[in-house]
Design a protein around this nucleic acid. Structure first.
Lengths: 338, 338
DNA sequence: GTGAAAGCGCTAACAT
DNA sequence: ATGTTAGCGCTTTCAC
């Protein structure tokens, strides 16, 4: 309001304005129950703060408390917008504890990644979250050991860090169960590159359920394709051209399901009347817009992000040892392709 | 290395270890050219810092310099992962100036948005970037006025903030030009909700180019649909069932193009041999995976993010008045649908 | 050229 | 119950 330069108002200003000491101001503003402040003083302080438009300086507070209230999130997700919900989940969960997320986006360049973590540490983050776009083993820069670290949607081969990962196996089970429930017995499975965790987990689930239902897995119905629409098209074509084709196809991801739709439609077949399709990932853009809508198993990104922060907070609080892997369920999302 | 508690090493430690004063350390570590430090002293300090594993405390530095080196980015993008590249572009550009981005994700709840900005201001961000998922007019909380603010992929109705937006008109031109160049004269246009900036801009471009080529716009070829695959399917069907159907369709977004593909294929027509399709947005997931690959006009998200930071930095440096709108070009991306 | 000293805005012992 | 005071880790002016 004054004509002079707009110097940011500090706690000292509030104290002066209210006619109390700085610590008194600190106490009431932080609502410290331990020390009792006269109701009257309290009100004066609050009024002064409001009147002056006081806004706490988070940095100064962090310095004094030796606690930044930040978690660092290093991830490639910003670059490859598949699992963004991890960020959302983590952010929302962090806010509950009044913690903030400092996001460092990386792109699989180890040197850049180390530099990014270095910057995060300079900001004195209390812990680190390391999140990947797709479930896989990752190499964590050694420097990450300096603070509690939890992995999300990935894991380290040596198992030195706690990790949050999707339950691929149960996901594979759910998809297969759904198809079985719809009366299908010949269920084709278009899998991903057989080496990745998603492929092995989903296949195990598929096999388990088939066997439990008394259906002998048929190797001719299992085929692995390139994880793209083209890959799905090719694989689905092969399946459909079998002498004894499947009546349902479980695609290990939605992109492949997209290609499978093409192969099916090309043959004049209808979904789901003539052949049922089920996907995996619940990639909105595809699953929701495909015609008919694709029934698919969802990857629980948001929950994984939240669980990651949960675990990180527990480790920092000393309530968790910070080891082991937690697995998050992949629910089935019904649309119209089964 | 010591057995004692791991107290973070400070500048004082480095000074002591090197046998110099704290200010000397500060000078060499910040490479202050103004004061000359003996080469020898310099080396000792550097060695001490390295040996002790000194890591500067960004917060303390910010407090002393009264400069946080942060920009706040408030956006709904994290929630709706369409324009994520804005974040990437902004982040990369900020890093060039050794500035960091504090990302606050919002979801169109004004109160929450104000609270988020409030938090950003408590962190003493030097400026604000406000980014939207889709090009539109937005309401900026009044509190944003406290620091330099620039809008990205959106604008405020009153024009009080500088904004970076895509050049929709030129985008519309490019698509139409491409189709014309392929020999088409009857070009259908499936537009978005006619009220939004993208729709008006793209339509203007389409008309301009048509007229310039001596083709009279035909209202029967212009139709606006729901911005989804279903909407595209319906609109394309209508176009294809015309007595004199178009030989090419310009879809104002890729999702609608996805639906258009279905309508076209259903009729046994081939893309692009029988009918050409061009999209808008370059939504990788769709455009790249559609069969055949979709030729489309790209939204320059990454550049817009970078330009946003550029402008913000200029405003903060006093090199720009911080008004006006800058428009970023939308390039054509050739794939195989024309 | 180098170092002492005074902050930056806040918290939390410790006195009163 | 309230206020005084000493830092938190760093920058920077100003003597030496």
């Amino acid at each position: 309001m004054s004509e002079t330069t707009r110097r940011p108002v500090t706690m000292a200003d509030v104290a002066r304005h209210a006619g109390v000491s700085r610590s008194a101001v600190s106490f009431v503003l932080n609502d410290r129950r331990s020390v009792s402040i006269a109701e009257d003083t309290r009100d004066r302080v609050l009024a002064a703060a409001a009147e002056l438009g006081y806004r706490p300086n988070a940095g100064a507070r962090a310095l004094a408390k030796k606690q930044s209230d930040w978690y660092g999130l290093v991830t490639e997700i910003v670059t490859a917008p598949f699992a963004v919900d991890i960020i959302k989940g983590a952010q929302d969960r962090a806010l509950v504890d009044e913690k903030y997320l400092l996001i460092a986006s990386t792109e699989s360049d180890p040197a850049a990644e180390t530099a990014a973590i270095e910057r995060l540490l300079e900001q004195r983050v209390e812990g680190l979250l390391y999140a990947a776009t797709w479930h896989r083993a990752v190499e964590i820069p050694e420097i990450a050991r300096e603070v509690p670290t939890v992995l999300v949607n990935c894991f380290d081969a040596e198992g030195r860090y706690p990790a949050i990962v999707p339950d691929e196996r149960t996901g594979g089970r759910r998809a297969t169960e759904r198809l079985l429930a719809a009366g299908h017995r010949r269920i084709g499975f278009i899998n991903l590159d057989p080496d990745i965790p998603a492929a092995v987990g989903r296949l195990v689930g598929y096999h388990e359920v088939l066997r439990e239902a008394g259906v002998a897995p048929d190797e001719k119905l299992e085929i692995s394709g390139h994880a793209t629409a083209d890959g799905g098209y090719t694989a689905a074509s092969a399946l459909l051209d079998l002498a004894d084709p499947p009546t349902a196809i479980f695609c290990a991801n939605d992109r492949m399901a997209m290609g499978a739709y093409d192969a099916i439609k090309e043959r004049g077949l209808r979904i789901p009347q003539d052949i049922a399709v089920i996907g995996f990932d619940n990639q909105e853009l595809i699953a929701a817009y495909l015609r008919p809508g694709l029934t698919t198993v969802a990857l629980p990104f948001e929950q994984m992000g939240a669980r990651g922060v949960d675990l990180l907070a527990a480790i920092i609080a000393g309530q968790s040892t910070g080891t082991g892997t937690v697995t998050v369920d992949c629910p089935l999302l019904e649309r119209a392709s089964v």
